[in-house]
Design a protein around this nucleic acid. Structure first.
Lengths: 360, 360
DNA sequence: CTGAAAGCGCTTACAG
DNA sequence: CTGAAAGCGCTTACAG
């Protein structure tokens, strides 16, 4: 492969002149530029990006670490949406993305550290859902910029992040169900140890409280983000008898699909008798029948915001700061409907009996 | 950030000794190693990957270029599956992936060229479906190793690739339908200009021919890979009257979903009256109702094979050669069934009338 | 505008 | 086993 020296020799100039022509930020006489470009063309010369990076002390690359041994990670819309967002931001800024796999939770953190410390990238976007409180501090000590995708596990001053407003979004989704006449609403929530599960549960409580509905603990279930978890939740809910929910909010679409399966097997028509709302607005949501009403979480926009914050900080030679909190959007399709008048009547009766008989 | 010199100073050795300790391939006295490691630890030293790359003339990175402006690219299972496969191979070999966006077809090729020529990666995996015949030759002239994902658009000696055996797979899928008693089978195929569409059509013809079935041109349709394309195809097929197909093969799951919608709207029960087979075995295939029988295309395995071939060639300092052709697997779910006896009888009658009245 | 030199932070053949 | 030096291919402050 030809270098700057080969081009210089052919053009009859000093290598530094060739460098100036290609780096663009220097005044070069038109005649010299022409000769250099001609020589470069003839030799099929392209500047070596690694040498440039070493010299400039910047790679125009940001990193991301992916838990590639976890199959579910690639079957969900989260990963591709994140990549799309990262690509939008990096492409616009003339950057590229360095992706590393990781085979365990500990390895994920090690890979982040490795990329940060070895300067193979100028900064990194870190998935905060996979981070604990202490690790964030350790990363800060590395000195290399990073931005969290999702918010920090605890209050870490000076840590930048981008996230969706999960609590508010779930609140709105549940309020929508209440607006359709539903009073008994289930929350099927994912892993209870995960932060977003707690936030969404809070949004669920917010909505019920705002409507003056007393939540029953039996309406709250954890499907652990799995299809079967949603399916199982239906069985448990049905055991509540006339206190069984007329609407379900599920923290992802897979669980919502499981709920639909559970209802279908019991011959319960959706949305005529029971409504279902999923979360993520994944591709299948629009393709199943009946099409699933789902909360669209702007993963691509979150990732784009995170990468933009990161790149801006890199270019300005400072640490990223601040945060971006993005709203979600409820995509109403076919699995949600107004509660039938007759059911409403029954529900009112049940609801009043509930206040008197509220022992588990 | 501390360098090898800082560590050397602290440990009281020459920088080259520090380098030897970290590169691993040199004999160092245990005592010296200990002192160096101690100093490195104290300074929180990590070798600079870029400097190492420049010196070693290798980055341990392979590239991939992604058409990030095309939304559909991130809604399909192709991209995440490919990333998973690439990550499996790169991780195992201690490599990482450099991802570049691209905003147009021409830009995609330019980005490949740029990565190849600037040596930002040691090699690259190129999606061959987005390549024309000439471009392959141009890439070869760059000298940097690459492997195609999918096979070359024409015979290019010395170009390495990994692909699925699409023709054989479709043949088997259609043969499966024939085995269930179907004789009138539709092919809904995607963009007719795309190579895989032609290959799958060939597999379809192979299967019919092997069963002695004369294909009608009316059974062949192109849905252009869109849901609505599948839906429209049903309308056209139904216009064939008693020559309408009792089974559909669709070249992706999205079109299969469109076909299911078209059948549902006409009150045609699946699989009791008509069978449907999709392609790709995307996540939604298992989640729709009835669950879609689909041809699983091993995208992850293809990508893994491509990356492995590439990395092996890089490590051996030669151009990648040869190819990997992987079988697909039919995942039978609920949309395929034996043709009812009564329908079979009608079909036999229709089939014999077809041989006598075969003018379009 | 252009040249000559030093430097980015490593690796590695060459001595000893 | 370890040191000293040259080199990887660029960039850029310093002169002129």
């Amino acid at each position: 492969m030809p270098t700057i020296r080969d081009v210089a020799a052919k053009a009859g100039v000093h290598p530094s002149t060739v460098s100036r022509v290609f780096s663009g930020r220097a005044s070069i006489s038109p005649e010299t530029r022409r000769r250099v470009l001609e020589a470069a063309q003839a030799l099929n010369f392209q500047p070596n990006a690694i040498a440039r990076s070493l010299s400039e002390q910047r790679t125009r690359t940001i990193g991301i670490v992916v838990p590639h041994v976890f199959n579910g990670f690639f079957e969900d819309s989260f990963f591709p949406q994140v990549m799309q967002g990262l690509l939008r931001a990096t492409y616009a800024a003339g950057y590229r993305i360095l992706v590393s796999g990781s085979s365990s939770h500990q390895d994920e953190i090690d890979q982040v550290r490795e990329i940060l410390g070895s300067r193979q990238a100028d900064g990194i976007v870190v998935m905060s859902s996979r981070l604990d409180v202490d690790t964030v501090g350790t990363l800060q000590s590395k000195g290399t910029p990073f931005v969290l995708l999702g918010h920090p596990p605890a209050d870490h001053p000076g840590v930048a992040w981008a996230d969706a407003d999960n609590r508010q979004a779930t609140r709105e989704a549940v309020s929508y169900l209440i607006g359709l006449g539903h009073r008994r609403i289930a929350y099927v929530g994912g892993d209870p140890d995960v932060l977003v599960t707690k936030e969404r549960l809070q949004g669920y409580r917010d909505a019920l409280e705002a409507a003056g509905i007393r939540p029953r603990s039996g309406w709250i279930d954890y499907g652990y983000f799995a299809e079967d978890g949603g399916y199982q939740a239906v069985a448990r809910m049905m055991a509540l008898g006339d206190q069984a929910p007329t609407a379900y909010y599920a923290a992802n679409d897979l669980m919502a699909l499981g709920i639909l399966r559970g209802l279908r097997e019991r011959g319960i028509p959706v949305p005529q008798a029971v409504s279902v709302v999923g979360t993520n607005d994944s591709p299948e949501a629009g393709h199943v029948h009946p099409a699933l009403t789902s909360l669209h979480v702007p993963y691509a926009a979150m990732a784009e915001a995170a990468a933009s914050m990161l790149i801006q900080a890199i270019e300005e030679g400072r640490s990223p700061t601040g945060f971006t909190l993005l709203p979600c959007r409820l995509v109403v399709r076919e699995t949600t409907g107004r509660i039938p008048a007759e059911a409403q009547a029954r529900q009112r009766a049940a609801s009043s009996s509930q206040t008197t008989a509220n022992h588990p």
